[in-house]
């Protein structure tokens, strides 16, 4: 708890709160819910229950709820009443956002922090405020690039203000995600966000040629795989792009074959931009590449299924023994499909 509360009087000792009747917490009927608090927390929540009962909505309610939230960021009744008070007072909601900025950074894992902002933004109905929030969440994610609440909030902002702003909010998303992936190519949240931006939220200006977008995105994924071949997020993205654009997996065979060898091949004399080779020192063969190639063979059917089975066997017995049962299932399923 921060030092700023240490020398503060209890509400019970403050003359300006003398008109409020504190409401002690319900005394539990049994051993499961008895009461024995820190004096400060108990005092504040007693006065909180008092003002809720009286229905008071005033600046001192904001100060009181701010105090409680600082002691217990998960106290959802305090959040809820604070929000109602802000609305009732016609308070400056953007000022509330600024007040909450540092608090949100410190308590980014608390759901209420983000929900409060969501309510404020909904009430503000301002694309400009939403744009400022995108910048704010970017700042938060710079500290913890995988925080789920922060990401969900950002995604909500983009979807919620989509129509008001003719998609303008989305304009910087792809470049920003690319920056995040530069920093950490294994950030699954960023890969997910890229899929949302490019594929799962409509077609934006400049992106109308979906085949071209598909080629760009699959090249992007291949480049990232080359940097870190055993990165499930990049492989998932690549598969997602192929499936979304109904592109046969077989079109990537020559790329994938570079990743199934036991040792990285000598650097080729001519760099093949369509098929970037694994970075030096990468751990090969890559399980995701083996799996991908087996899928290609299985899709081709007929004679090719035997090749898929060989790969699945190697995964079950050597390269991915933890998921042996899964690979055995693929073998049975693949053979059955070939017979059918």
């Amino acid at each position: 708890m921060s030092a700023e509360f240490e020398d503060v009087l209890l509400y019970a000792e403050r003359p300006e709160w003398a008109d409020v009747t504190p409401l002690p917490q319900y005394q539990g009927v049994d051993a499961l819910a008895p009461i024995n608090y820190s004096a400060e927390y108990q005092d504040a929540t007693d006065y909180f229950r008092g003002i809720v009962k009286a229905g008071e909505k005033s600046p001192r309610v904001l100060a009181l709820t701010w105090n409680i939230i600082n002691m217990n960021p998960a106290h959802y009744s305090a959040w809820q009443y604070r929000y109602k008070t802000l609305l009732a007072m016609g308070a400056d909601l953007e000022a509330e956002l600024r007040l909450m900025d540092d608090f949100a950074v410190t308590n980014m894992k608390t759901y209420q922090v983000w929900h409060h902002r969501r309510l404020l933004l909904t009430a503000l109905r301002s694309p400009a405020a939403a744009a400022a929030e995108l910048a704010f969440t970017a700042r938060v994610l710079a500290g913890d690039a995988k925080n789920y609440h922060t990401w969900s909030y950002r995604q909500w902002l983009l979807v919620h203000f989509n129509d008001d702003d003719e998609g303008g909010l989305w304009a910087g998303e792809r470049a920003w995600v690319e920056e995040l992936l530069e920093k950490d190519v294994r950030n699954n949240s960023a890969w997910h966000h890229r899929f949302l931006v490019v594929w799962a939220s409509g077609v934006r200006r400049g992106d109308e040629d979906r085949e071209a977008v598909g080629r760009t995105e699959s090249a992007f994924a291949k480049d990232k795989i080359a940097l870190a071949p055993n990165n499930p997020s990049a492989w998932n993205y690549l598969r997602g792009v192929l499936e979304h654009t109904k592109t046969p997996f077989a079109t990537l065979t020559s790329f994938v074959e570079l990743y199934i060898v036991s040792d990285a091949a000598e650097a080729p004399e001519v760099v093949d931009l369509d098929n970037p080779a694994p970075t030096e020192g990468a751990q090969l063969p890559c399980v995701h590449a083996l799996e991908f190639l087996a899928d290609v063979y299985e899709q081709e059917g007929g004679e090719q299924v035997a090749k898929a089975v060989e790969i699945w066997k190697s995964l079950a017995n050597e390269h991915d023994t933890m998921r042996k049962k899964y690979w055995e299932y693929r073998i049975r399923d693949g053979l059955q499909g070939a017979r059918a």
């Binding site: 789920y148 969900s152 909500w156 979807v159 799962a200 997602g240």
Partner: peptide, 16 residues
């Protein structure tokens, strides 16, 4: 529902 087969907390959110 997401492209990786999973589901997120709200529409548009990452699979978890």
């Amino acid at each position: 529902r997401n492209f990786d087969g999973g589901f997120g907390a709200v529409a548009g959110a990452e699979s978890h």
